[in-house]
Design a protein around this nucleic acid. Structure first.
Lengths: 226, 226
DNA sequence: GACTGTGTGTGATATTTGTCACTTCATATA
DNA sequence: TATATGAAGTGACAAATATCACACACAGTC
């Protein structure tokens, strides 16, 4: 028994714009699914068969490296479509996605989705806005990572988790130190050292996966000074 | 005397889709302009007043750093809109743009452009495709830059110029060594050293602004091995 | 309880790369 | 022609960071 898109409280901004007949069309061409923690949602290089919309839960977007070394791109929050740039800008998925926690998702038929865009400019506009915001965010993150060195990068990562992802200065993150390093392009050891330095200085408190930011302004300062 | 959009051979893929009345609307709400080499088109932080479409010429997209040190993001080719992600994802321009050579551009009224998107889903779809392709390209460049060290980065930059920008193994580039370094996140000196090493090894030939790639496969190899 | 695998912390060391100082070169200008 | 000026090349050195090696903690399994 599938919940109706019309009354779904997890639906996207774009879907909120659709009229009744469009909503019905969408409902007839989508289905629900779920993932357990650590399950792979789809792999880079795979043909795009359906659009995956994350209703609840966090997703890891990453790129599998040659030597088994993954590069982590970002954490995708709930109420997001996975891999829209790949859908419109390419024929295959460019990235891989893994559930960071239990997820509920919707699978949407590609052609239905594309037709909604082509026939409803307002829907298209909302999708465009979401893609553009995502693009700006990613760019800013990448540019920051590129310009800074270890302490600035780690400070950035912590602020990113606290402000963008969890919207809270206390959070629990199911990423290893190695993963955090892969997100900001530094080694596991450097990540450890930076986090411990911040802890020693009383800026954060952390035990493995739990993080508490005690002095956000200090992190901000470190982030800005590089 | 403005050339008609209907017969403009520099028009974008998206504009090719418009019907006669839409083309007329566009024409009535756009004007032509030009820039000389090194002129600034607009600055980051400025309010978006018009959309700038580059008909001919190359544009440098960059970010002004705190200490007068610019970060170069990418080179924008002709037949591109400047800063679409900023237009749809924010209220102000996120990046600065400078003419790398003489340019001809069109200024398009924002509301006219947005209305075309909202009333013509096919137009919206084409804009979406272009934004997504751009986003994928940028991501790949950023991820490569992040993962590799000097020689890999420089090899990447050379392949980027040859394949993406000039579509030719011989090209003339009005960027200083310092600029090239800023594009891939390394210093001027390291850029010089890498280019000279490639030259000594017979992989490229370069004299200041002229570049000739003699062994593309070798660059590819260096790029892949990091 | 012993064993195993995985994640984490830490010091020593090697590598990479940025920075500094200086030279050379090309171009423009008086 | 002389002379600034900015870009480019180069060697020496310092700083940042990865790598290596090892120890430890913890959870699951036999």
């Amino acid at each position: 028994m599938k919940e109706s898109c019309a009354i779904c409280k997890d639906r996207s901004c774009a879907v909120s714009i659709l009229n009744d007949s469009e909503l019905e069309l969408l409902e007839q061409n989508c289905s629900e699914g779920m993932f357990r923690k650590d399950e792979i949602i789809f792999h880079q290089g795979s043909i795009i068969s359906h659009i995956v919309y994350v209703r609840t839960g966090l997703v890891l977007e990453y790129l599998k490296g040659n030597s088994g070394r993954n590069q982590i791109i970002q954490i995708v929050k709930n109420r997001s479509y996975l891999g829209l740039p790949s859908l419109f800008g390419d024929r295959v998925n460019n990235y891989s996605y893994k559930a960071l926690e239990a997820l509920t998702v919707c699978y949407i038929d590609i052609n239905t989705f594309k037709n909604l865009i082509k026939t409803n400019g307002n829907f298209a506009y909302e999708i465009l806005v979401s893609v553009c915001q995502d693009s700006l965010n990613s760019h800013h993150r990448f540019l920051n990572i590129n310009a800074k060195q270890t302490f600035g990068k780690v400070a950035d990562a912590l602020l990113y988790f606290a402000r963008v992802i969890f919207e809270n200065n206390t959070f629990e993150l199911s990423l290893t130190r190695s993963d955090i390093g892969a997100l900001i392009g530094i080694s596991r050891e450097s990540t450890t050292r930076a986090l411990n330095k911040f802890q020693t200085e009383g800026i954060i408190r952390t035990t493995s996966s739990k993080f508490e930011i005690l002095k956000p302004h200090m992190l901000q300062k470190i982030s800005e000074s590089g």
